[in-house]
């Protein structure tokens, strides 16, 4: 099977959004985790910031990342004509 230029562009855009979302995932998990002690003095609704992120903030961001990806890709499928038929 021969891929068209359009197909390749679809894959490039998929890789780009995947990369950006993984970068967000990495920052909220590992960068904040690494600097947890340094960020301890910041408070957010009564919590020290790193504790808040570990217990809630990062989790919310994970849920949003996955929600965004699903929506973005489902739209991208339509745009590039690679969506599945109605089931």
């Amino acid at each position: 099977m021969q891929l068209t230029e359009k197909h390749k562009e679809y894959w490039r855009r998929n890789l780009r959004v995947t990369g950006i979302l993984l970068a967000v995932w990495f920052v909220v998990t590992f960068v904040i985790g690494y600097f947890a002690r340094e960020l301890q003095s910041i408070t957010i609704i009564g919590f020290p910031f790193p504790f808040y992120m570990g217990a809630q903030g990062s989790l919310v961001i994970y849920v949003v990342i996955i929600w965004f990806y699903a929506n973005y890709m489902n739209k991208l499928d339509q745009e590039y004509g690679v969506h599945e038929g109605d089931d």
Binding site: T29, A36, G54, S58, L59, Y62, I65, I66
Partner: peptide, 24 residues
């Protein structure tokens, strides 16, 4: 305390990898 949050983070954040890299 805080150190136990490794489990909370690890067992939720892994789904980002499932969603972006494998499931579809």
């Amino acid at each position: 305390g805080y150190d136990g949050l490794a489990f909370v983070l690890g067992w939720t954040g892994g789904y980002c990898l499932v969603a972006l890299l494998l499931a579809p």
